[in-house]
Structures are given as structure tokens and as C-alpha cells.
């Protein structure tokens, strides 16, 4: 890791998706724990803090298909290669989204050329650089975005979700 990107990590590393940069998160990031105190989210749902990947595992434009907050909720972790709303990392371009279309739960395809997610069921499309903003389609909300946090080592954690994942009454099942 070069010095420049190391400094950038320090600058951006404590920012969670959602635009919150909690200063106390710095200390927390230095000693990552699976059950660390959550950053100030608007929810009271018990979101788990789960490690998704290390920054070096991400290749620009290639999605990592993972799950969060549980195995039944597929997500896509991406390095877009351009600054994204709520993006994290030195280039503010690392984002993650639910892979279930917020219209009727179709499995979304990521298209790197356009930087969008597309649903094969009813052709909904969401902008991956704009917090899942709907481009066109019949969904009733923008695509749920996974709130991310990167620690100083470059480990990427999922810490919460903006919006309700398709097929649930609450993002945390039960």
C-alpha cells in the first residue's frame, strides 16, 4: 500500500455508507470486533457487523456476490472505479447493494459498462453510483444500499441497510 492511499484510508476509512463520519469510529476501527458498537444509524434493528472482504479482493467493475445480514439476503459488493454516493475507500467508490429487486424480488444483474443493476423480471434498473437510485422501473423504493465501513487495515464491514430488502417485513428476520 502506498503512502498516498494509506493517508486516504485514514481520511475515508471511518465513514460509513450514509455519509456519516463518526469520529469515535476511528478507535473502534483500530480494534475491529464482530459486535462493535454500531455507528449512529436511524434504525434500532440489531444489524450485525459482518466482514465482507478486504479491499484488495475487489477488482474494478467486478461484483463480489455475498450475503448480508443473513444467508437468505444476497448482496453485491463492488468497486465502481468512480466516486459513488455513500461510497467508501480511498476513491469513495466501494458500494454494496441488495441483489433482490425492490419491485418483486428478481435477481439483479450488475452491468459494469453502465454501472447499473438490471432486473430481468420487469426491467427495473438502478444506478450503482447513486445509492441505488432508480433509473427506470416499477420498484416502489430505490435499491436498498448496504452501509459499509472500512477499517484501517482495509477490511470492509457491512453494518446496516438503507431501505427495506424485498421479501421481508424487517431487514432482520424473526
Amino acid at each position: 500500500m502506498s503512502d498516498i492511499s494509506r493517508r486516504s484510508f485514514l481520511k475515508f476509512g471511518a465513514c460509513v455508507a450514509g455519509g456519516l463520519c463518526a469520529s469515535e469510529a476511528l478507535g473502534e476501527a483500530a480494534a475491529p470486533r464482530e459486535t462493535a458498537a454500531r455507528p449512529a444509524l436511524t434504525t434500532v434493528l440489531p444489524y450485525p457487523r459482518l466482514k465482507l472482504a478486504h479491499a484488495t479482493q475487489l477488482k474494478t467493475g467486478v461484483e463480489l456476490r455475498l450475503t448480508y445480514p443473513d444467508k437468505e439476503s444476497p448482496i453485491s459488493l463492488l468497486k465502481l472505479g468512480k466516486k459513488a454516493i455513500n461510497g467508501i475507500g480511498p476513491d469513495a467508490d466501494i458500494v454494496a447493494y441488495s441483489r433482490l429487486c425492490s419491485h418483486m424480488g428478481g435477481s439483479l444483474n450488475f452491468r459494469p459498462s453502465a454501472g447499473e443493476f438490471q432486473c430481468p423480471l420487469h426491467y427495473a434498473r438502478f444506478d450503482a453510483a447513486k445509492s441505488g437510485l432508480i433509473i427506470i422501473g416499477q420498484a416502489t423504493d430505490n435499491l436498498p444500499q448496504i452501509q459499509l465501513h472500512m477499517d484501517r487495515k482495509g477490511d470492509i464491514y457491512a453494518v446496516g441497510i438503507l431501505g427495506l430488502v424485498y421479501g421481508r417485513r424487517a431487514n432482520i428476520l424473526g
Binding site: T43, N86, S131, G132, L162, R168
Partner: peptide
Amino acid sequence: MSKIFHGPDRVPIP
């Protein structure tokens, strides 16, 4: 909060 609108992360069921 986010610059982009996202609805709540839960909904009451009947």
C-alpha cells in the same frame, strides 16, 4: 442521512 431517498427498513404487517 443519505443524499438519496430510502424508505424505512421495516414495515408493519396486518
